[in-house]
């Protein structure tokens, strides 16, 4: 048994495998189909200060080896999360037993439309003892007011991270957009303002056209591309970012199997997230956590940190 425990800021993860926001609901949706207690972390659905209805249907279009989505942050708001969803998560995981029994870190993905908005949402989540971290979404391509607007400009990114940092006292992960010229510039801005880690990539902006109807397949015209088709782009960006910052990098983008996950680790990610692949195989994240351990054993590597950033 290799050591696959990883530390990200104040987080102590039992393994490096987390599920990506927006692809795994609140985790409990999958509880009948896999053992969600065995995950390293669960990053729950994007949460905003006030409820959002999201975009109109259609919100998805399948593409070659992937999919586009334009969900648009549909959620019931931070107060609903605190009042109704958090207690259900607590009833399932028993957060008070975190030190004595293995459980995933439950991380809330936070979004907003202004730095104040992000900070107010983050400070609500800060009050929940069972939530050890947030992931700041400055990279959603599907909302007009905010989201990616903060993640495609270093100054704007710095202003959001700085106001959230002042309001939030636990581990702060900033999720980066790939829809930029130089992702390392945004990563450095997040680091300079006190982010504990960065996660990347969010979806790549794309579109698809129904030629018979001469219409876009998505209600708002464009959406975010995810799935195995984005993996090479994500891997390149993780490699570049891991060399540009001193905080941990969490890699995601098209990971479908153990070998994909190992590639991200070798590119410099200390942990990884599984997104779209959850839709195809609900057990995939559990399989990858086991697979990483088996791969390390087979290669006589005692500790996962020995392969992080090891690509030559």
């Amino acid at each position: 048994m290799a050591n696959i425990n990883v530390k990200i800021g104040g987080l102590d993860l039992q393994n490096p495998v987390m599920t990506a926001s927006g692809t795994f609901g609140y985790g409990l949706e999958y509880a009948n189909l896999m053992d969600i207690r065995r995950l390293g972390g669960i990053i729950v659905k994007g949460t905003t200060l006030t409820p959002r209805e999201g975009n109109d249907y259609p919100r998805m279009a399948e593409t070659a080896s992937g999919m586009l989505n334009c969900v648009g942050l549909q959620n019931k708001g931070a107060d609903y999360f605190c009042k109704h969803i958090y207690p259900e998560l607590d009833a399932f995981f028993h957060f008070e037993k975190r030190d004595i029994e293995p459980q995933p870190a439950i991380i809330v993905n936070v979004s907003g439309s202004s730095p104040e908005d992000y900070a107010a949402c983050a400070s609500r989540i800060d009050t929940l003892p069972g939530i050890p971290a947030i992931e700041l979404n400055i990279s959603c391509p599907n909302v007009h007011d905010g989201g990616m607007a903060f993640g495609t400009n270093a100054k704007a990114a710095a202003s959001v991270v700085s106001s959230v940092r002042a309001a939030y006292h636990k581990t702060l992960i900033v999720k980066l957009s790939p829809n930029v010229t130089d992702i390392t510039e945004i990563a450095r801005a997040a680091e300079a303002e006190g982010a504990d880690a960065v996660s990347l990539i969010n979806t790549l902006m794309g579109t698809s056209i129904d030629i018979e109807r001469r219409r876009f397949r998505l209600s708002i015209g464009t959406g975010g591309l995810s799935g195995p088709s984005v993996k090479p782009v994500a891997l390149r960006m993780v490699y570049q970012t891991a060399r540009a910052v001193n905080i941990p990098v969490i890699g995601l983008g098209g990971i479908c199997c153990t070998e994909d996950a190992i590639e991200f680790l070798m590119a410099g990610a200390q942990a990884i997230q599984i997104g779209t692949a959850n839709f195809v195989d609900p057990k995939v994240s559990e399989k990858i956590a086991d697979g990483i351990n088996d791969w390390l054993d087979a290669h006589h590597i005692a500790d996962i940190s020995d392969i992080v950033g090891s690509v030559e």
Binding site: G25, K45, R59, M60, V71, F279
Partner: peptide
């Protein structure tokens, strides 16, 4: 039969507008 991805209520792609919201 809206277009859907996860089938489990996790991804929120297949929503229909209803009197209770999406």
């Amino acid at each position: 039969e809206n277009l859907m991805a996860c089938g489990l209520g996790a991804c929120l792609c297949c929503v229909e507008k209803t009197r209770r919201g999406n």
